[in-house]
Each structure stands twice: as structure tokens, then as C-alpha cells.
Simulated assay, not measured.
Amino acid sequence: MQIIGIKRAVKHSPNHINNDATIFQMVADQLQQKGHQLTTYHEHEFLKLKPDTAALKDVALIFSMSRNRELLAILSGIQQSFRGQIQMINSPRGISNCFRSNITRILLNQQIATAPSQIIPTAGYAPDDLKKLDQGHGLWLKRGDFHAIIKEDVVFAKNSDEAAQLLANFHSRSIAEVVVSTHLEGDLIKFYGVSGTNFFHWLYPYDKGHYKYKEFKAINGATHYFDFDHQLLKSMADQASVAAEVPIYGGDAVINDKGDIAIIDFNDWPSFAPCRDQAASAITRRLIQALEAMNRPTARAHQELS
């Protein structure tokens, strides 16, 4: 059986171009070392290819880091055509679920602890909505329709008046809605996981230099190392993984001085830069699990015929 891997476009890897490419290649290498037949594509190559049913007849698994909307639509079409005969990890639906507005709705609907948040249109919104979210520590504004591509896609406002000005900036860039969240004071945690395996890793990013923008470090403040339930963090992350349909995931959480945990961001297939050796092995195991799950019905059928 064939496996296809699709790499993430550079523009969808802000500040993590090499890290994203590295984790993808490590997984691809491990699959090949284990004897699996693998073909990898860059996003633009797969888009040009537009494979038909005949070209995919021997494909059992597609693993993808792509966030390209056109490519996700193609993968969704392949899923519908093959109706479970081709596994996809992460699936196009799961990847879309992690677009900012979508994942915010999922966290809120699943009652997974997160920052007080509201999806607000960049024009025609009620100013009181901003004031209600402002608890005196500032507000985060994040483009709702996608992931952050440029620095201006995630910005901090000191108060609701400044947030209104930033909403106007989003509107000028034709971004229709923004996730506005209350800034939570506490320790920032980054976490990484692969469902179906025992791999889960978390760290204080400012201690290890694993963060995108240094000015955000000043906003979040010094790490206090508040005590918290590590297993609860994993449980919450796993719950978000299932709800978002994203087995390969990462995210951010804030721990307050009482040890309360709030997940403030959740992403499909992050770079795993602080833990890529363990992560690559876990991702490879997860992909092989998907292949084995597909093979079991066939194996049983052969046994029944013999």
C-alpha cells in the first residue's frame, strides 16, 4: 500500500519554516525505514497534480501538514470518493477545525477551560462586547478565518479602545471576524501531543526560547512556576484533540496562581521543535496504527475464506 505525505507551504510556517520541514522529513524517513512505500509532495505540487481515482487506487494513507484551503477541498473530495479506503491524518476537516474561530467555538462548546472569548465582526460590532471582555489586563485579537500568517494576525490591546482601533486594522485587510480574548495572567505553557500514543510534552517556552515574538514575552510576564495538575493538562489537550478531530496537535495554556488551567490556543501538527525526536517516533507510530486498523478487516476476511 502506498502512503502520500504533503508538506506545508512556507507562508503557513511563520518563524517555523525549518522546524516544520524537519519534523515532516523525520516522519517520512522513519516510514521509509520501516519499509513503507512513500511519495511526498509540496503543496503546490499536489495542487498541480490533482490526482484522479485511478492514480490513488493503491494509496492507503495521506498524512498532511497543509493548511491551503484549495488543497483541503481536494482532500475532502478524495475522502468522499474513497469512503474510508484512504486514511487522512490530520484530516482536512480537523485542520479546518483549527482555524481560529472554529477552534474557539469548539473549546467553548465542549466546555474546555479557555480564556473568556468572543468572535467579533470587524465591522458593525457592539462596542460593549469589547468592554465586557476587558478585565483590566488587556485583550488579545486574533484573525478568525485562518491561522496567523503574519505578525499582525495576533495582536495585543491594552484596553477596549485600543482593541477597537486594531479591529479597524483587521477590517482594512479584509478580515471579516476576529477572536477577541481576555488576557489571562499566569504562566504560559506550550504542549504537544499525538493521540493514540503515550507521547505528551509540555514546557515553559520562555525558559527554552521557544516562542515567536519576544514582545509577547513582556506582555505575559515572568514565569512563576505555579503548581498544577500535569495529568489534567494532558486530559484537556486530549479532549480538545478528539473534539477537533486532530490526532497530531499542539497548543498553549495559561496556569494561574491557583493552578487553574486554560487552553488559549490549539493547533494541527505544530513544529514539535523542543521534542522532535520523540514526536517524530510517536507520529510515525500513529500513522502506522492507522494503516494497521485498515488492514484488520482485510486480514479477517482472508482468514474466513481460508
Rank of each mutant, 00 (worst) to 15 (best):
A237E: 07
Q231G: 03
S81M: 07
K158G: 14
S174K: 10
D153K: 03
G144D: 04
K212E: 02
A262D: 00
I120L: 04
N159D: 15
I3V: 13
I248W: 07
F200T: 09
F46E: 04
S160N: 10
G5L: 11
A299V: 14
A60F: 02
I261R: 03
G35N: 12
S91A: 12
G221C: 11
S160F: 12
A21E: 11
N295W: 08
D227G: 10
I149W: 00
A176Q: 09
G250W: 06
Y211W: 15
V180D: 05
N18I: 12
A164N: 12
N19R: 10
D29S: 14
N198L: 11
P51V: 04
G35S: 09
C275A: 06
A237S: 15
F99A: 06
R83K: 14
H137C: 09
I264G: 03
A290F: 02
S117E: 02
G144P: 05
S160L: 09
L287K: 08
K132G: 00
S174N: 09
R83L: 06
G251D: 00
G196C: 08
I6Y: 03
A28N: 06
P274Y: 00
K7V: 01
V154Q: 07
V254S: 05
Q165N: 14
E304G: 03
Q239N: 11
I4A: 04
I150H: 05
S172N: 04
E185V: 14
K208A: 06
A148P: 00
P297Y: 00
L38E: 07
Y206W: 11
M294K: 14
A164V: 14
D20R: 12
S76F: 03
I86Q: 07
V254W: 02
Y225F: 15
K142D: 00
S101K: 07
N15F: 07
S96P: 02
Y206D: 11
N267S: 13
L56W: 00
A126W: 00
